[in-house]
Amino acid sequence: MIDFALTITDTGWLTTFQDLGRRDAERLGVPSGGAADQHSAAVANLLVGNTRDAVLIESMGGELAFVPERDVLVAVTGAPSRVTVGGADVVQWSPVLVPAGAEMRISETPFGMRVYAAVAGALETERFLGSAAPDARMGFTQQIARGSRIVLRSWFAGFPGATFPQALFRLPVPVPTFPAGPWAIDAVLGPDSARIRGIRELIESSTYAVTDRSNHVGLRLNGPVLHPEGDDEIVSHGVPIGALEVPHADELIVLGRYRTLTAGYPIVGFATRTALARLGQAGPGRELRFRWVERSAAAHAAATAEESLRVLETSVHSAFDALAPARL
C-alpha cells in the first residue's frame, strides 16, 4: 500500500467525493444521501476491485480530468461520456489503466447527469456519520476543486503479465441503457392513489418532463396530475426515496436521496428500488413514463440487479487473479 496524489486538472459543475450514503442516519434526521445513481457507483468500484461502498468521485456536467502521480486503475461509469487517457479514447464501464503523469479526461454527455470515477484503492477524505457522501444542507460539501490534489492509498502497480499495457477486459458488466426518448420508470402504487380517482390511469398514460427546478432533493416533473378532494392536512410522516408526491401545485415530485425526510403531501406511488438509479441520471428536459408494477415484481428486479453485481464482483476477481497485478 502506498499513498500518492491525483491532481484534479478539471472539474464538472459539481464534482464531489461520493459513496453509497449513510447507514442508519435517517433516525437522527439525516438523509442517507449518497450517489444518485447507486448502480453506476457500485459498478465503478467493483470494476477496479474495490468494495462497492468505497469512496469514489461523482461529477455532474462539464469535464472532469485528473493526472495521477503513479499508475492507477480507474473505471468510469454513469452517463455515457467520452473518456480519454492521454488524448486516446478508452472505454467506459471497464477497468482502465491511467499511467503516471497521463491525464484522464471525461467529457460531458447529453444523455445523463452524473459520471462516476472509481480508482483502485482508498481515496482519503472526511466523513460525516461514517460516510464520505456530501450533505450540502448540513454544510458537508465534499466538493473537489480544480487544481486540488486528492490522496489515494493504492495497492495497484500495473499488470506485468498483460500483453498490452492497457489490458482488455471482457466482463459481465450490467450497463444500463440511456435511450434518447422517454425513460420507463417502474413504480408501485402508493397509499393515496386510491383516494385520488383516476390518478393511477392518468400517471400511467402520461409523459412527464423533468424541470430545471429539480435537484438531489427531488425531481420536479411537468405533466398532468389530479388532487384529492377536500383539503385535509396530512399529518407529517416519513417519506422514502422515490416517493411520488402530488404537492398542492400541478406538478409531480419524485423524492431523491437528499429529500426532506418527512412530508405531508399525498403520495400516489413509489419508484422501485431498481428504477432509482435511472432517476438519478434524469436531467432537465428528460421525459419519463411511469409503469405500475407489483411489489413482488419490484423485489424480483432488485434481486436480479443484486445478482448481476455479485456476478461482476466474482468475474473481476477472477480476471485480476489471472492478470496477476503487481501489488504495492
Binding site: 447507514r23 442508519d24 433516525r27 399529518v235 410522516h237 416519513g238 422514502p240 425526510l261
Partner: peptide, 14 residues
C-alpha cells in the same frame, strides 16, 4: 430493518 424515519403519528421503517 435498516433505518427508521419518525413522523408525528407514524414510523417509516425501511
Amino acid at each position: 430493518v435498516v433505518d427508521v424515519v419518525s413522523g408525528l403519528e407514524s414510523l417509516l421503517v425501511s
